[in-house]
């Protein structure tokens, strides 16, 4: 039963974040790239001030899958690295924390780009 509620929570929270961002897409002239940049930066800030971790504990993937979660992962990676290694951690922590997602995007992107071709949109 708790699995069911976890999924419902992820659905509602993740969906709500997307719906809010949709307002910015429709009502402002922000390009998608700018929106993604804003989300990541916002995620780093929320992660830094310690709000995002409890949010993930509550909503699970509903909070970690949106790009703000990616930002929070960067922030958490940095904090961990600074705790362990001092100032140099500020340089190493972020990408270490988010290495999986970034590398996967590059690797699968490259791999599938070799296999597939782009088609005109309908």
């Amino acid at each position: 039963m708790s699995l069911f509620w976890d999924i419902v929570k992820a659905f509602l929270v993740g969906g709500a974040i997307c719906a809010v961002v949709q307002i910015f897409i429709d009502k402002t002239a922000l390009t998608p790239a700018r929106i993604l940049v804003c989300l990541v930066t916002l995620g780093v800030i929320l992660g830094a001030v310690g709000v995002y971790k409890p949010f993930i504990d509550f909503a699970g993937c509903g909070a970690s899958t949106p790009l703000t979660g990616f930002g929070a992962t960067l922030a958490e990676g940095v904090r961990k690295a600074v705790d362990e290694r001092g100032l140099i951690g500020a340089l190493t922590g972020g990408l270490t924390g988010s290495a999986g997602g970034i590398t996967a995007a590059i690797f699968f992107g490259y791999f599938f780009a070799l296999i597939f071709r782009s088609k005109p949109r309908d």
Binding site: I25, P32, S118, K119, P120, R121
Partner: peptide, 18 residues
């Protein structure tokens, strides 16, 4: 051509935009 113009002026063909 839709595809050459998209690439030049807008987004990649498979890019998910509205």
């Amino acid at each position: 051509h839709f595809c050459t113009a998209e690439r030049q002026f807008r987004y990649p063909l498979e890019y998910g935009g509205q």
